[in-house]
Simulated assay, not measured.
Amino acid sequence: MQFRSLDDIRSACRDLPAGNETSAAAAAARQDQLTKPTGSLGQLEALAVWLARWQGQAVPRLDDVSVIVFAGNHGVTAQGVSPYPAAVTAQMVANYARGGAAINQLATLAQAKLTVVPLDLDRPTADFTGAPAMDVAQFLDAVNAGYDAVPARCALLALGEMGIGNTTAAAAIAAALLGGDAASWVGRGAGIGDDGLRLKQEVVDMALARHRAVLGDPLAVAMSLGGRELAAILGATVAARRHGIPVLLDGFVCTAAVLPLLKLNADALSHCQAAHVSAEAGHRALLAAMKLNPLLDLGMRLGEASGAAAAILLLRAAVACHAGMATFAEAGVAERSGP
């Protein structure tokens, strides 16, 4: 599929395939037959059922897991919102290629294939305090790149990002679509001090004022205040839904990237789990507003799908119990008979 207009994206979001409720019901029934008190594995049971719903099989598998990290550069870094220069984005992409980043180690541990997709790193988005970050053509190119990066066959997809300045973009999107001033959403990102935090808040407020006219349109907000990697995450999330692939979303930036989809369709993210709640100031509030319950709370704020990759291990635990445990009948164990 290629999106040739913003209306194409809106149309796709209105017509999203549902999960397989027959498989989900069968998975839930199996959970009740396994050698344990009902519900005693807590969220591991719910995760197995969620995977079954989106994989379309009562006993889900995690044989083919993918991690995709999208990278983009932001013109708003000219405002001094990050302690790191924009060149670090490309340098980190090279580090991923050499296997030297945290996500390399975590993806290997999680037995997941890592793909890094750099998006026009030599061509930053516009500084959105003075102009839209992307025009329609640039936004659609990034959305399509994300869509096309998703394999048609995949048991689970973990999404992440890399881009100096992208927590500023994420905070601006959250403020634009959920309300509140910049101080409600802006955090320290890669580690700015108090003066940098105040500057970053001012920059986001400037951007919100500059783009006030589009704040009622989720896709126009993503185009005006986002970045190429955020747009690609949006496209990849739509692709995963259409392919029937369950998704793990990484941190604050990744969550903000898919917020426009939720604004277009309240069911748009039912195939997604929030992998973790990051230490970035606005992430917990963003997850609460989107009714996403994080699987992990480890104080992470790295990005690059690191939290999502860590959560893959939790899903592997859920699948191992669901698929490998004996039922009461198989084990010859008496089931509960009393109240």
Rank of each mutant, 00 (worst) to 15 (best):
A133Q: 03
L121R: 10
K113P: 08
G99A: 12
Y84H: 14
A71S: 12
A87G: 13
T115S: 15
I103C: 13
D63I: 01
M134V: 03
G99R: 07
Q79P: 00
Q105Y: 12
A78L: 13
A86L: 14
D135P: 01
G72I: 02
V65F: 05
V65D: 07
P85V: 00
M134F: 09
P132E: 13
Q79H: 05
V67W: 06
D63E: 13
G80F: 00
T77Y: 00
A112K: 11
F128A: 09
P60Q: 10
T129E: 09
M134G: 04
S82R: 05
A90L: 15
D64K: 08
A71N: 09
G56S: 06
A71W: 02
V69S: 03
T89W: 08
V69M: 04
I103W: 03
L106T: 03
W54E: 02
F128Q: 02
T108E: 08
V81N: 05
W54D: 07
G72P: 07
F70G: 09
Y96C: 15
A86D: 03
D127K: 01
H74I: 02
Q55E: 11
V117H: 10
Q57C: 15
I103F: 02
D120Y: 09
P132L: 12
T89L: 08
S82L: 01
V76M: 04
V65K: 09
H74F: 06
N104H: 12
Y96S: 04
S66G: 04
D120E: 15
V88E: 06
R53I: 01
P132Y: 01
L121Q: 13
A78D: 07
L109E: 14
L109R: 15
L114G: 09
L121V: 14
S82T: 05
T125R: 01
D135C: 13
T77I: 00
G100C: 06
F70Q: 14
V59N: 04
V93E: 08
T125N: 02
V59S: 11
A131G: 06
T115Q: 14
A71R: 07
R53H: 04
F128M: 14
T125M: 11
V76C: 01
D120F: 11
L109D: 05
P83T: 02
A131W: 04
F128I: 00
P124M: 09
D122W: 03
P85R: 10
G80A: 07
T129F: 11
L121S: 05
R123H: 15
M134Q: 14
A94F: 00
N104S: 15
M92R: 05
P60V: 11
D63Q: 10
A112N: 13
P118G: 11
D127L: 07
A102K: 14
